Deep mutational scan, measured.
Amino acid sequence: MQNSHSGVNQLGGVFVNGRPLPDSTRQKIVELAHSGARPCDISRILQVSNGCVSKILGRYYETGSIRPRAIGGSKPRVATPEVVSKIAQYKRECPSIFAWEIRDRLLSEGVCTNDNIPSVSSINRVLRNLASEKQQMGADGMYDKLRMLNGQTGSWGTRPGWYPGTSVPGQPTQDGCQQQEGGGENTNSISSNGEDSDEAQMRLQLKRKLQRNRTSFTQEQIEALEKEFERTHYPDVFARERLAAKIDLPEARIQVWFSNRRAKWRREEKLRNQRRQASNTPSHIPISSSFSTSVYQPIPQPTTPVSSFTSGSMLGRTDTALTNTYSALPPMPSFTMANNLPMQPPVPSQTSSYSCMLPTSPSVNGRSYDTYTPPHMQTHMNSQPMGTSGTTSTGLISPGVSVPVQVPGSEPDMSQYWPRLQ
C-alpha cells in the first residue's frame, strides 16, 4: 500500500499530492522566468500547473527564495509595531506611495530583511487598517496617535501638521516623493554593498519588468496595427511575429492590442446598429396606417339613396333571421326581375335548405315592403301603392349592394327569390 497518492495534472505532468515540487523543477521555473518566458509558457514547457508556477515565482520575487514554506503551523507575524509605524510614516510623507514602493524602502533602510519582509498584500492590509482606524477615531485622537508614531512633539492640530517642515499644504506631496526618490538612490547604494547585491538587483529588475506600465504606442505603430486590423481581426502567430519585427513591439503586446481592438470594434458596431435601427424607425405612426385595407374592405359607393341603408337594423327591421341572411350572402350585381318571367313554384328541397333563413311567422307573405323604405322617402312611396304591378321595390342582398326588384302586385311571395340566388 502506497503512503502517498501520485497523479497526472491537466498538462500531463506527474505530481505527488500534498508534497511540494522538487527543487530542480523550481530552479528551472526561475531560470525560464529570467530568460523572459511568460508564466503560461513555463507552465506548458515544464508541465506544471499555472497556479503552481505563479505561486513559486511570486514567492521568489518577494523573498528571493525558491524553497517551499513549512507545511503546517502558523507563519510568524511580520507586521510588527515597528514595521507598522514605518509604513504609516512613509504614507504620511508621500500619500500616493504604492505598497511595493513601501516594501522596497523597508528593505533599503534595513527595517526588514528578506526573511521577515511583509508581502505587498500585508502592507496593503496595514494601510487599510490605518485608514479604518482613522475613520473610527476622532480628529484629536487621530492626531495624537500619528504624533506618537512619528515621534515628534510638534502641533498636529492642523492639517499642514501632517507634513512636517512644510508650510504650503500643496507642497508636502512633492517633497515626500522627492525624499522617497532619494531613498531609492540609497536603495541602490545599500544593496550594492550587501553580499547578495547582484541577486537582489536582478530580482528587482525582473520584478519591475513584470510590473509594467501601460504600453505607449507611437503613431507609426498605431498606423501599422490599424492597417493589419483592417486586413483581418484575428491575425495568426506568423502575422503577429512579422508585425512585431516590423514595428519593434513584443508579440504578446500585439496580441493584447488586437484583443482590445476587437472589443472596441464590437462596441462601435453595436452603436452603429442602434443608430441604423433608430433612423429606419419613423418618429410617429401615421393615422391612416393604423387601418389596414386588408382588414377593412372598402364599401362601394351607393348608386341610389335607398342603398345607403345596408342592414335591417338601420331600417328599423327587427327580424334577425333576414338580417343574418342578407349579411351572409355574397355580393351580387344589380339585376331586375321582369313581370314576364315565369313564376316557378319553389322546389321543396330548395325551400327546406333555406328554411332556417325565413321567419317562422306566416304573415311574411302579407307584409308590405314599406318597412324598408327610409324616412325621407315615405311620402313618395305612399303616393304609389304597392298593389300595382309596376311598383318597384329595392331588396338588399349584402352591405353596400342594392338590387332593384320588380315585385308582382298580386302576391309578394318571398319564396320566388331563392331559386334565382343559387
Rank of each mutant, 00 (worst) to 15 (best):
Q2H: 12
Q2C: 12
N3D: 09
S4A: 13
S4F: 09
H5L: 09
H5C: 13
V8F: 08
N9L: 01
N9I: 02
N9D: 01
Q10R: 13
L11K: 06
G13H: 02
V16K: 15
N17C: 15
G18D: 01
R19K: 12
P20V: 01
P22R: 06
P22C: 06
P22Y: 00
D23W: 08
D23V: 13
T25C: 06
R26V: 03
R26I: 02
R26F: 00
Q27Y: 12
V30T: 05
V30D: 00
V30H: 01
V30Y: 02
L32I: 04
L32N: 02
L32D: 00
L32R: 02
H34M: 13
H34A: 14
S35F: 14
G36E: 04
G36W: 01
G36N: 08
G36K: 04
A37F: 15
R38N: 03
R38C: 04
P39Y: 07
P39S: 09
C40P: 04
D41A: 07
D41I: 07
D41S: 08
S43K: 02
S43R: 00
R44T: 05
L46A: 04
Q47N: 02
N50L: 05
C52N: 02
C52V: 06
V53H: 02
K55L: 03
K55G: 06
K55H: 04
K55S: 02
I56N: 01
I56Q: 01
I56D: 00
L57W: 01
G58A: 15
Y60G: 01
Y60P: 00
Y60S: 03
E62T: 12
E62F: 03
T63R: 04
T63M: 02
T63K: 04
T63Q: 03
T63E: 08
G64P: 00
G64E: 02
R67P: 04
P68H: 05
P68G: 00
R69G: 06
A70G: 10
A70C: 08
G72I: 03
G73H: 03
S74K: 06
S74I: 01
S74G: 07
K75A: 06
K75C: 04
K75G: 02
K75H: 06
P76N: 02
P76G: 01
P76C: 07
R77H: 02
V78T: 00
V78L: 03
V78M: 02
V78K: 15
A79H: 01
E82K: 13
V83W: 00
V84M: 06
S85E: 09
S85Y: 09
K86L: 07
I87C: 07
A88W: 15
Q89K: 10
Q89D: 08
Q89G: 10
Q89N: 14
Q89C: 15
Y90V: 14
K91H: 01
K91S: 04
R92K: 14
R92A: 10
E93S: 08
E93R: 10
E93D: 08
E93N: 12
I97T: 11
A99C: 05
W100C: 06
E101F: 06
R103N: 04
R103E: 03
D104P: 00
D104R: 14
L106S: 02
L107H: 15
S108P: 06
S108A: 12
E109Y: 09
V111K: 08
V111A: 09
V111I: 10
N116V: 10
N116D: 06
N116T: 08
I117K: 15
I117Y: 14
I117Q: 15
P118T: 04
S119I: 01
S119L: 02
S122K: 14
I123F: 01
N124D: 02
N124K: 06
R125C: 04
V126H: 04
L127H: 15
L127N: 14
N129S: 07
L130S: 12
L130A: 14
Q135F: 12
Q135V: 09
Q135M: 11
Q136F: 13
Q136L: 10
M137W: 11
M137L: 13
M137Q: 13
G138V: 11
A139Q: 15
A139H: 12
D140M: 12
G141R: 11
M142S: 12
M142P: 14
Y143D: 10
D144N: 10
D144P: 12
K145R: 10
K145C: 10
K145N: 10
L146E: 12
L146N: 13
M148T: 15
L149R: 15
N150I: 08
N150D: 13
